[in-house]
Each structure stands twice: as structure tokens, then as C-alpha cells.
Amino acid sequence: MLHRFANPARFMRLSGVLLPWMAGAAIILVAAGLYMGLFVAPADFQQGESVRIMYVHVPNAWMALFSYTAMAVASAVALIWKHPLADLAAKSSAPIGACFTFLALLTGSLWGKPMWGAFWVWDARLTSMLVLFFLYLGYLALYNAFDDPTRGARAAAILALVGFVNVPIIKFSVDWWNTLHQPASVIKMGGPSIDSTMLWPLLLMAIGFNFLYFWVLLLRMRGEIHANKIRMIRLRQVHG
């Protein structure tokens, strides 16, 4: 199964077919989610209109963790089975995840100002998200620090796996510590405790963001493959 899709030529064909569908699904779902979140869903009785930041903030934060998990899985596959496509997937996932993490931190601090009275507080959830952002940056820096790109890929893959310890810490930080950040209300034992009028736009946004992630991921991976081809052609011209 893995080997069937590890062939770059087959990957290019398949991803070319999938790309427009991913793009369409992402745009439609995010547009619907935004409309429902901004106009249909009710304002919160405590937080007022500013609760609507949630529809952007929470999917961003989920995707920040999802991207890192995907990056770690791809890194493990790359280290164990040495699939060149897994390396590309991990490398392409990192900048997307870094963007999601940055946006989660940014929207969170915009939400924190009216709710907590401060843009930033040093609680466990915020600090561990900030560490996640640094891990992404460290991964990218290490990837590009070697003259030999395969060395960079393997060193960065090991770092991605080491940094994965942070992911469960972020997920459970609000349960383990008494924090200002509110505890999990969607993904938890006993089902979500959030009202369905708010849950639906949130889920639409989350699935839309997921499609957005895969859309950009495929675009970046295709870009990397094209860049590799160009490098090969140039090398051949030099040596030929």
C-alpha cells in the first residue's frame, strides 16, 4: 500500500487529480463555516460577540497539532522505510504547521485581550503552544543547515520525533494544570459540552481547515518534486 503511493510519478498524477477537489472543498467548507459562525450562530451570553473568534482560533490550534503529528509520522516513515516522499511530506508540513501555530497564538491573544484583560498570560496551554512554534522553527532551521539535503532531512526527522513529546502535553495541559485557558469542550470523554449551534460552524471550519492543509501540503510537495527535477537537470548540464 505504502509502496504503491511512494512512486513520485504516480504521486504527481494522483495529486494532480486531487488538488482541485481539495481546493474546492476547503473554500466551500471554510466559507460556509465562516458564514454560520459570523451570522447564524448566537453570541455567547458571557463573552458576547467576541466568542466568534473561536471559529478561527480553535481550528487553527487543532491544525497546529495535526500538522505536527503528520510531520512526526512522516518523519518516522522516512527514517524507517526511507521513502523519499515521506521526507518531502514532513518538510512540506512544517511551514504550514508553523503558520497554523502562529495564527492560533495570534487569534488567541486577540481573544484574550477582551476576555482576560491581557494579550498574553503565561499559563500551561499558551506556553506549550509557544514551545510548539519554536519546535517548528527549529525543525526548519535544522533542515536547511546542511550542505547535503539528505543529511538535513534525516537530522530534522529525528528532531521532529523528539519534539513530539510536546503534543500530548499541549492537548492535556488544560486538564493537568489549573489554567486560565478553558478546558477541552469538544474532544473529550462523554461527548462535546458545547451547544450544537456553535458546534456545527466549528466542525465545518475544522474540516475546511483540514482540506486546506492537504491542499497546501500537496501543492508544496509537488513544488519540491519540481524543484528536485530542475536541480537534476542543472546538474546534468554542468556534468554533461
Binding site: A141, L142, F146
Partner: peptide
């Protein structure tokens, strides 16, 4: 960081978090 460029600065970026 063995064999990389700018080892020392890179090390702090990787390890401090």
C-alpha cells in the same frame, strides 16, 4: 548539529525549547 553550518546558534534554537 554535527556537520551543519552555524552549529552553535542552531543548537540553542533546537535545545532551549
Amino acid at each position: 548539529i554535527l556537520g551543519s553550518r552555524r552549529g552553535g546558534v542552531l543548537l540553542s534554537l533546537l535545545i532551549l525549547p
